[in-house]
Design a protein around this nucleic acid. Sequence first.
DNA 1: GGTAAATCCTAGTAAATTACTAGGAGATAA
DNA 2: TTATCTCCTAGTAATTTACTAGGATTTACC
Lengths: 151, 151
Amino acid sequence: MKLSTKGRYGLRALIDLAQYSSETPVSITSISARQDLSERYLEQLMAMLKKAGLVKSVRGAGGGYVLAKDMAAISVGDVLRALEGSLEPVECAGLEPEGGCKASDQCVTKYVWQRINDSISRTVDEIRLDQLVEESRKKQCAGLDRTGCKN
Amino acid sequence: MKLSTKGRYGLRALIDLAQYSSETPVSITSISARQDLSERYLEQLMAMLKKAGLVKSVRGAGGGYVLAKDMAAISVGDVLRALEGSLEPVECAGLEPEGGCKASDQCVTKYVWQRINDSISRTVDEIRLDQLVEESRKKQCAGLDRTGCKN
DNA sequence: GGTAAATCCTAGTAAATTACTAGGAGATAA
DNA sequence: TTATCTCCTAGTAATTTACTAGGATTTACC
């Protein structure tokens, strides 16, 4: 039940992007320098966020990334699902009649997995990027030394 | 953010044990037959549950396992934590001053991990084994064909 | 037009983790 | 004494993770 580095790094990167975004796009180089992340790896995470429609890219010199929508319209759930795939703790928790096992409507544990899933979803969907950026400004995280931080 | 087979199989096994427990202990052989699980693997899971104080074992012929406490005193959280280790989505979510990163009190993402952690904990700690056994009896899961079910 | 600064795209890969299997030692009821 | 159990430690194939590597392409600017 651990989040991978994709989710951890990716959310950090997106908060950073939101915080530093203005008219001009923010480059991977600058994000990875501030957040102490591998440029090459971050590149892949940004590709996932782009595919999910959370960021837009500007190619060429002076290019980079900008948020594709308003900060308030992006939830932590959107970000984590883009990077981690489904957040369901067990696959059968979903209601898809295809992937799920046949016994699932008689299955007691399914009830458990579904409740865990619901509580995670509710939580991540109610935290929005603008809240985090606000919080970050308050805490003056800009100068935060990220060296060695894995979260 | 997936639960491993330890948590999935182990919870199923423990519900089965609770359902079939009486004066006589329940053997791994019988649980694994009903639940379609590997005996050898289940052995290891039961050892973890025993170490966590959730079940007691009776050695020798006619032996097996019994719950170490009342069903109502065992939560899904107890079971999953025994089998999966901490359920925290990210290590720094904990308050341990040792393992956590130094920057953690200025760290915005920590707030996110902590909220996810809290919601998972609240959910799994409020579901108790007796509720699941009750539910299982209602649904008559005894005859449920578990062949190939991975959850 | 050339160059530097970017994103884009695909592969490869070492390390860790998962999900088991295997082999036997020890305990106990019949 | 034997069959049926738990207990304990190792081993291991497959998968996943967390990157790194090598370019191709696009674009601003001189």
